[in-house]
Design a protein around this nucleic acid. Sequence first.
DNA 1: GTCATAGATCGAAGGTTGTCAATGTCTGAT
DNA 2: ATCAGACATTGACAACCTTCGATCTATGAC
Lengths: 116, 116
Amino acid sequence: MSDAKASEAEVDPCCSGAPVAAIDEDDATQLASVFAALADPVRLRLYDLVCAAGEICSCDLQEPLGRSQPTISHHTKILADAGLITGEKRGRWVWWSAVPGRLAGATDALQAVRAR
Amino acid sequence: MSDAKASEAEVDPCCSGAPVAAIDEDDATQLASVFAALADPVRLRLYDLVCAAGEICSCDLQEPLGRSQPTISHHTKILADAGLITGEKRGRWVWWSAVPGRLAGATDALQAVRAR
DNA sequence: GTCATAGATCGAAGGTTGTCAATGTCTGAT
DNA sequence: ATCAGACATTGACAACCTTCGATCTATGAC
């Protein structure tokens, strides 16, 4: 099945031998969960709102996002589980803020392979 | 519902007035599709293999990823539709390569908001 | 032409996700 | 103690996603 190189070219186009997987399955699953958290338009706008505001209350997310309160709660939980935002409870309200470097760290883990 | 600021503090903690959404719904949907393409462990490793190899044949993806041929074809299509990889058909084989700057462009669109 | 192979497409099974109504829990005010 | 409000949780449903077997198309070898 993998005689493409042998029949098209004598030498491997990039390195040598079989391609080496830089990311193992566990790392891939971990990384994918971060991207999955941003794979929804509502969550992207939510994350954007949090970044733009620096700190924002859950109750102020409901109106601009146009979703019900349980749905907002659901999305903040997913973003928090992915480590992209963090919430602090003050009195009756929860204030959300972005975790610095978390998104950059995820993309770096992928892009780092190009530097080799 | 949004009297949190008024009751907890007199001044808005970051800017002033209602928070401004930096990303509109259409942009968010477009951006989310790029992240959705990377939100699967198999596709992440596939993208990683393509980046690491520079150029790689579909038939050489099947074995390291441990998925059937239709599944590999499905995933390459999703990554290609998202603009992350591009394929060139040569003879019987399709050679895939990463689209430079595509992933960085997506993350920049999100992170740019922090620079404001 | 005939045959073998690379890859795309189709259809189906099973799991996951986004959404909201209803309800529960906790906090601060009266 | 009682009440109202901010979030979390549960349950349900529709939509979507991942996967594979079967099949189709296209290309190169004989």
